[in-house]
Write a protein that binds this DNA or RNA. Structure first.
Lengths: 230, 230
DNA sequence: ACAAAAGTGTTTAGTCTACACCCATGC
DNA sequence: GCATGGGTGTAGACTAAACACTTTTGT
């Protein structure tokens, strides 16, 4: 007995809130200008319909790659939005994901002529299609809460970074100033950073030491019951 | 121009992981025995198809009421499960919710003859339909993580409770022993409990003082930047 | 030599942890 | 009177917060 359920079905899409840090340590979100109706010409999150034979996460990765060329980035499910009237034409449920990317390693560009890709500061978002403003608000809350308890901030930085870059990132996302000495002492005491034999170059002042995140050691400590907290 | 999107569509369901504390301070999950195919006769989470004109949360509340008679309980979205083969017959995406309930205030009973409702301890679950074991695992993780940082534990207790009941709940969910004096000092210092002029009755030892949770004050403190943490 | 950011310790207040005994009640 | 859980304080270890100057480098 194989049949398909005969209930009327909603459409299901995935949408991605992609965060990136620009050169001035500003947290930005990637938006695309829609080339098709509805909301043609307005800004929206990258996303699209889930195919019947792909997982939700696979759909999110696929859409990101198709629309922005981005691959191999940190991606996690955020929340599922399903108010009946969130799409003007049809019942559409969207499973939202959020992604973290470091801009220096991932150049972004529109993949189709009909769409444009741009980075917008969270404080200065344009008018958005659908309920994408709500999705972005939820994603901002999530990243803010998560940054304290999981080492996800490193996803936003280049592989080699300075302690000041890391601190600026935390200050930016958490929206508060942090004490330099206390911040350094705390993060270094966790012993999750690898002190590299390499310095910053091309700066007009004393060059800072570069560090990288020890992902393997973190996984090991986590299994042993360690909790990252900053 | 009104048309509906013409992609092939998955089915969308909601499933609910309902947690309750029994009289022995054991954390249990409510399961129903399926009366229909697929997995007829096996145990599963209460849930069902989302109607086209209702929100996801409304669907979860409706299914809970229809299948178990439960109303007005704490309910929050958990995660959306969408592996292509999680339902043997059709592509079904399920938006999972978790709920917290206090058993003394909410008697539970099957609403249809074809289905049976029962409470199972998390440690002794029966074989489950679909991927409901994974959904339950995710819900257990969530509640464990959330209990520390949000006052959701009170949803599992009667409105009036003793400090020992509260402590036992935390010990049960977190899976660790807590020190009685430290626990009491910490929770009382937050000043979120109302000390009632009422004592426990019907116990064969010194009666404990009853307390209730001050929800209004919590909301107020939260707005002012206070973070619950235990 | 100066501008700009890197790097580095100490003191103080507050919080967390471990720990043991008397109290009230019902049987 | 005894069994059962209720209720209470303190000392020592640790953690968090506040705070300012010297060093290095490029221009």
């Amino acid at each position: 007995m194989t049949y398909t359920y005969d209930y009327p079905k909603p459409s299901v899409t995935v949408d991605c809130v992609v965060f990136g840090l620009d050169a001035e340590h500003d947290l930005k979100i990637m938006l695309i200008q829609r080339g098709v109706e509805p909301f043609k010409g307005e800004w929206a999150l990258p996303g699209g319909f889930v195919k019947l034979d792909e997982s939700l996460e696979a759909a999110a990765f696929r859409e990101l790659k198709e629309e922005t060329g981005v691959e191999e980035i940190f991606l996690e499910q955020l929340y599922t939005f399903g108010t009946p009237d969130r799409d003007p034409r049809d019942r559409v449920i969207t499973v939202a994901y959020y992604a973290l990317i470091n801009l220096s390693d991932h150049p972004i560009h529109a993949q189709t002529d009909a769409e444009d890709v741009a980075w917008y500061s969270i404080q200065e978002l344009p008018k958005l299609a659908f309920d994408h403003d709500q999705i972005i608000a939820a994603a901002s809350e999530r990243i803010k809460g998560k940054l304290r308890y999981e080492p996800i901030g490193f996803e936003l930085l280049p592989k080699k970074f300075t302690l000041t870059q890391l601190q600026k990132l935390y200050e930016q996302v958490l929206g508060m100033q942090l004490d330099k000495r206390n911040f350094r002492r705390k993060i270094l005491k966790m012993d999750l950073l690898i002190k590299l034999d390499e310095m910053q170059t091309g700066v007009a002042h004393r060059a800072a030491r570069l560090y990288s995140f020890n992902e393997g050691k973190y996984q090991e400590l986590k299994r042993a019951g360690f909790n990252f907290e900053l």
